[in-house]
């Protein structure tokens, strides 16, 4: 079975470490906040200028002046700080964020990522994604392995305009966890019940399959 969005978030959450500063993108990455392991303290960065994003507000707490980068109303947690966009991207570009999690349309064996436009079809803009991928050392991309028509999104070379070049090393899809090393994907883990054959069939870019590929476990 392919991973659910919640399971993908759960798997990403295992990469968290106590004391991390983490930027979570929109979509599945946002869900990671729900799976921070007990006893672990991490500080969530929201690029509109908030370090220490808290839970969504209660009705009574809703405040138009308090939003996250997805423009949702949020709260600030204890020990949060709030600053300008320039300061926010100084910490991102300066490599101060320990882990960045974001979505993508495509990734390739060179560590390129495309996530911000589909020519002629969709122009949402890159927002902060280009700064995030250029500034972070530790990035996890979350995405579906293939399109609904079965077209692989893990390619030899991205076909869409890039968000960043040569900056991605870790990819979690609904089928597998892979790393990118020396111009190839390396299969590290597979989703429960998903065969190596299926992953191979749905990976267009060069893929190295180690002898033993552990299955992810969820509780």
């Amino acid at each position: 079975m392919a991973l659910s969005r919640e399971q993908m978030a759960q798997r990403v959450a295992r990469e968290l470490k106590d004391g991390y500063y983490v930027n979570l993108g929109i979509g599945i990455p946002t869900l990671v906040a729900n799976y921070v392991p007990e006893g672990m303290d991490v500080m969530l960065q929201s690029e509109n200028g908030l370090l220490g994003m808290g839970a969504f507000p209660s009705e009574a707490e809703v405040d138009a002046d308090m939003i996250n980068a997805g423009k949702q109303t949020v709260t600030a947690r204890r020990g949060a700080s709030i600053f300008s966009s320039a300061e926010s991207f100084a910490m991102i570009r300066g490599g101060h964020v320990d882990l960045t999690v974001l979505g993508a349309f495509e990734v390739d064996v060179e560590g390129n990522i495309a996530s911000w436009m589909i020519p002629g079809k969709l122009v949402k803009g890159m927002g902060g994604a280009m700064d995030l991928v250029a500034g972070a050392d530790n990035i996890i991309v979350t995405m579906t392995h293939a399109s609904k028509d079965g077209e692989s999104k893990l390619l030899s070379r991205c076909s869409l305009p890039l968000t960043g070049a040569g900056c991605i090393r870790k990819v979690l899809t609904d089928l597998a966890y892979l790393e990118i090393e020396n111009g190839t994907f390396v299969l590290k883990e597979r989703a429960p019940g998903v065969s190596v054959e299926e992953i191979v069939a749905k990976t267009a870019g060069k893929l190295v399959v180690p002898e033993h590929v552990p299955e992810m476990t969820f509780y």
Binding site: E47, S84, S85, A86, S88, F89, I92, R93, V123, G125, M126, G127, G128, A129, M130, D131, G135
Partner: peptide, 13 residues
């Protein structure tokens, strides 16, 4: 002119 958010902030700064 679509401009990355951090670059936009820094251009203004």
């Amino acid at each position: 002119e679509l401009t990355p958010q951090g670059t936009l902030a820094e251009k203004l700064r």
